[in-house]
Design a protein around this nucleic acid. Structure first.
Length: 445
RNA sequence: GUGGCUAUAGCUCAGUUGGUUAGAGCAUCGGCUUGUGAUGCCGAGGGUCGCGGGUUCGAAUCCCGUUAGCCACCCCA
């Protein structure tokens, strides 16, 4: 072939498209069950929108170009900045909480590999205007239910839950200022993928000789998996005054979040894991990532609090929490668990046509059935009955409608239940009335 | 951006130490006298052997480059 798809872009043949729509359908169904409203935004946006949020470095990972009007533009690499703009523009008139979701294609100019393409679909779910942990709970519960909707269970995935506020308190207890904390959080984010000596080396500029002892205390915190130990750990931090009060209040938030999640049936999926901090600096509170239970593979979804972002992008002060789930990693996992159904689009009826007069009859009946929404197929060219029956069986249709000269003379059509192998004659003027019962219970022999 | 592996028909793959016109299965299309289901029978189409260059009398095969795919790193909104 002369032309191939661009690297990292996919074509969706009908089977693949059906599988994609299966994923979209489950996402949409769960979002609606939680009463989130669907919105959409442009695929092409001003480049500046992304630079404002993520910094100049982001440009190297974008599909960006100059349009004919001389505007610097980019294909959207994520939904959040567009969403923050939508929200910001109408913030004062939106009934809170604002619960919105989107399913859309996104584009990143990166090297394609396992679980990562250049064009991919993301399920974005966000809540604006509620700062308490009940919003985080609602969102994480939705995430868990979305994954369960594909047949995944507690043995298949975990949501690792962490908290950047807590980290800032822990780092304050270590005597770190804001800048030092930001640096250290960046290092913690990569802890799992970096060897220990290298990490100590990276910590040294901030902590000097303390680096190794500090790392020891960090590792202790990251190993915590249950709430009581976390609470004990936080209570024992050398914090005073205002910071001590903040720590106490934060543990109340944790208690509420975990209680809500448990009540919502998501308790089995939650794993306290302070090792998650997420690379992005704009996250402000609870952060979380969903992973395959074995820990293998890329994150299935990730999200958290970003209370300051709407304001940073020009809107009013608006607390926010959200997550995004990509289709690529999800489908990889579903396939490995044999949870991707094989879809075959098939008609309900297929006509078998004896000749030109019979074709007139078949087309007339098909038109009526189709107008009622039934799925009807018929052969576009005249073929022998044998061939047509074979094709009818291969089509996967539920019923064959047989239009022969002999039937036509008597004003009937022969209906064959292709699953059961049974046949009956139905008067053509009775066909529409009989169809619901046919589809309901098939043809008794 | 860096590195490793791979590339033959729509798909899955054969193709010997370099040797004539590159094969198979599946899929597709047509036929087997216009009336009934899998595995039927006969036949057909489909390949610049990823692309470009080199070595050679001769390259799918050896060498170099390049592109794409997969994988790992980087990054991961």
């Amino acid at each position: 072939m002369q032309f191939e798809t661009l690297p990292g872009f996919r074509e969706f043949y009908p089977e693949a498209c059906a599988r994609r729509n299966h994923v979209f359908g489950r996402w949409r169904q769960v979002a609606r069950a939680f009463n989130f409203l669907e919105y959409d935004a442009p695929v092409l946006e001003p480049l500046e929108l992304y630079i404002e949020k993520s910094g100049e470095e982001i440009v190297s990972q974008l599909f960006n170009f100059e349009d004919r009007g001389g505007r610097a533009v980019a294909l959207r690499p994520e939904m959040t900045p567009s969403l923050a703009r939508l929200i910001g523009a109408k913030a004062n008139s939106l009934k809170r909480p604002v619960k919105w979701f989107n399913i859309g294609e996104h584009y990143r100019y990166e090297r394609p590999q396992k679980g990562r393409l250049r064009a991919f679909y993301q399920f974005n779910v966000d809540i604006f205007g509620e700062q308490g942990p009940t919003a985080d709970a609602e969102l994480i519960a939705l995430l868990c239910q979305a994954l369960q909707a594909f047949g995944l269970s507690a043995g298949d995935f975990k949501v690792r839950l962490s908290d950047r506020d807590l980290w800032l308190l822990m780092l304050a207890a270590e005597g770190l200022d804001e800048a030092g904390s930001a640096t250290v959080l960046g290092i913690i984010d990569k802890l799992e993928r970096t060897d220990r000596a290298k990490t100590i080396e990276k910590l040294a500029p901030v902590l000097g000789e303390q680096a190794e002892a500090f790392l020891g205390r960090i590792e202790e915190a990251i190993a915590i998996r249950d709430f009581d130990r976390l609470r004990a750990y936080i209570e024992n931090l050398p914090l005073e005054g205002d910071l001590a009060a903040q720590a106490k209040a934060r543990m109340e938030d944790w208690a509420q979040l975990l209680r809500n999640l448990k009540a919502a049936g998501a308790g089995d999926f939650i794993q306290i894991d302070l090792g998650i901090v997420r690379g992005l600096a704009y996250y402000t509170g609870f952060v979380f990532e969903a992973f395959e239970a074995s820990g293998a593979g890329r994150a299935l979804a990730g999200g958290g609090r970003y209370d300051a972002l709407v304001k940073k992008l020009g809107g009013p002060d608006m607390p926010a929490v959200g997550f995004a789930m990509g289709d690529v990693t999800l489908v990889d996992l579903l396939e490995s668990k044999s949870l991707m159904p094989e879809y075959m689009q098939r008609p309900e009826f297929i006509a078998i046509i004896g000749g030109e007069d019979e074709r007139d009859a078949a087309l007339a009946d098909a038109a009526q059935l189709r107008a009622l929404g039934y799925q009807v197929e018929y052969p576009l060219k005249n073929q022998g009955f044998g061939k047509q029956f074979k094709a009818a069986n291969q089509s996967g249709a539920r019923f064959a409608l047989i239009y022969g000269s002999e039937e036509l003379e008597r004003g009937v059509v022969k209906v064959r239940d292709l699953t059961a192998g049974t046949e009956a004659e139905i008067a053509r003027d009775q066909l529409l009335q009989q169809v619901p019962a046919l589809l309901e219970s098939g043809l008794e022999s």
